[in-house]
């Protein structure tokens, strides 16, 4: 990667990141923790943020990029306002999770990993979040919805979007 002058805008997001990095300055092996927090601030980890973390923690950018791309949790592309995460763990799989994903993809007109045209939802899949008793299950952000059918899942995301749109 070419050497380039890093222009960091002076905005609240970067000030918050700077504060977090200071917090972890004396903790051994802080990279993953810092990236975790950074993703919470920015929603994803664009190149600039990776570069900033690399310089501040004095870790080569290649290593930062290596870590970011190794773990599923880190995103390098912007995501929608809310993430619909459908569990594809074994219990969900045998109870028809694939059909739930297909129905959602069809409804949102996206493939897995993509964001709907209106930027509201990103459709994603997970490897089991331990809600096997409720299989098949999905999460919208941190909230779990269980015992789904393809039809019910579509209803849930419609309802969720309607509620939020009405609130605003």
């Amino acid at each position: 990667m070419e050497c380039q002058e890093l222009h960091i805008p002076d905005n609240p997001q970067y000030r918050e990141l700077k504060r977090i990095i200071e917090e972890y300055r004396n903790v051994p092996g802080p990279l993953i923790q810092v990236l975790n927090r950074a993703q919470r601030i920015f929603g994803y980890l664009p190149r600039e943020v990776q570069l900033y973390v690399s310089r501040e923690l004095n870790v080569p950018l290649s290593e930062v990029y290596g870590v970011v791309t190794f773990y599923n949790f880190f995103k390098t592309e912007p995501v929608g306002k809310h993430i619909v995460n459908v569990c594809l763990g074994t219990a969900c799989h045998v109870k028809g999770a694939q059909r739930v994903v297909d129905a959602l993809a069809n409804e949102l007109k996206v493939e897995i990993g993509q964001t709907s045209q209106d930027g509201f939802y990103t459709l994603s899949t997970a490897r089991c979040f331990g809600a096997c008793g409720l299989a098949p299950a999905m999460m919208i952000d941190d909230e779990v919805y269980g015992r789904l059918t393809p039809g019910k899942a579509v209803e849930v995301i419609k309802e969720f979007q309607k509620n939020e749109t009405n609130q605003n």
Partner: peptide, 8 residues
């Protein structure tokens, strides 16, 4: 506590 980042 150290949080993982999604890698089996």
């Amino acid at each position: 506590v150290r949080m993982g980042a999604g890698a089996f």
